[in-house]
């Protein structure tokens, strides 16, 4: 069975190591914060200038001056720091953030990502996504393997305008975990009950399948 959004987020959270600084994009990536293993500590970076983002506030804690990059009200954890936008992107562009997790429309075998612009549709802007994909040490893309019409989002070459080039190394979809290297997608895990054939059928770009593909463990 294809994973739910929550299950994708759970699998993402397994990637985090104790002591990681992590930036989570809007959508599924944000959900990963709910599944950080209890025995490790990660610090969430929000690119509007907060390192150590905490949960949403209670009504009593509500403060218009405390928001995240999605413009939602948040709190800060103990040990957090707050800074200006240039400082925030120095962390990102300087490669100091350990992980960034973000969604995408398309990813290709060269590690290119398209996530911000669909021609002839209204363009809202890239926000911090181009900086994040250019700067983070490890980037995980989370998305559904295919769009709602069944078209693969893992391509030989992206068709939409790019967010970044040669920057994606790992993809976690509702069907599989894949590495991007040597101009191919390498299948490393499949969702419980999902066959290699289904993944193959929904992957348009070159897919390398090892002899044994383990199921994801939750």
């Amino acid at each position: 069975m294809a994973l739910s959004r929550e299950q994708i987020a759970m699998r993402v959270a397994q990637e985090f190591q104790d002591g990681d600084y992590v930036n989570l994009g809007i959508g599924i990536p944000t959900l990963a914060a709910n599944y950080v293993p209890a025995d490790i500590q990660v610090m969430l970076q929000s690119e509007n200038g907060l390192l150590g983002m905490g949960p949403n506030p209670t009504e009593d804690q509500l403060d218009a001056d405390m928001i995240n990059a999605g413009k939602e009200t948040v709190t800060a954890v103990t040990g957090a720091s707050i800074f200006n936008s240039a400082e925030s992107f120095a962390m990102i562009r300087g490669g100091h953030v350990d992980f960034t997790v973000l969604g995408a429309f398309e990813v290709d075998v060269s590690g290119n990502i398209a996530s911000w612009m669909i021609p002839n549709k209204l363009i809202k802007g890239m926000g911090g996504a181009m900086d994040l994909v250019a700067g983070a040490k490890n980037i995980i893309v989370t998305m559904t393997h295919a769009d709602k019409h069944g078209n693969s989002k893992l391509l030989q070459q992206c068709t939409l305008p790019l967010t970044g080039v040669n920057c994606i190394t790992r993809i976690i979809t509702d069907l599989a975990v894949l590495e991007v290297k040597n101009q191919a997608f390498y299948l490393s895990e499949r969702a419980p009950g999902v066959s290699v054939e289904e993944i193959q059928a929904k992957t348009a770009g070159e897919l390398v399948v090892p002899e044994y593909v383990p199921e994801m463990q939750f």
């Binding site: 690119e47 200006n84 936008s85 925030s88 992107f89 802007g125 890239m126 911090g128 900086d131």
Partner: peptide, 9 residues
């Protein structure tokens, strides 16, 4: 449209 970090910089 300008990337957010580029805009700050």
């Amino acid at each position: 449209l300008t990337p957010q970090g580029t805009l700050a910089e």
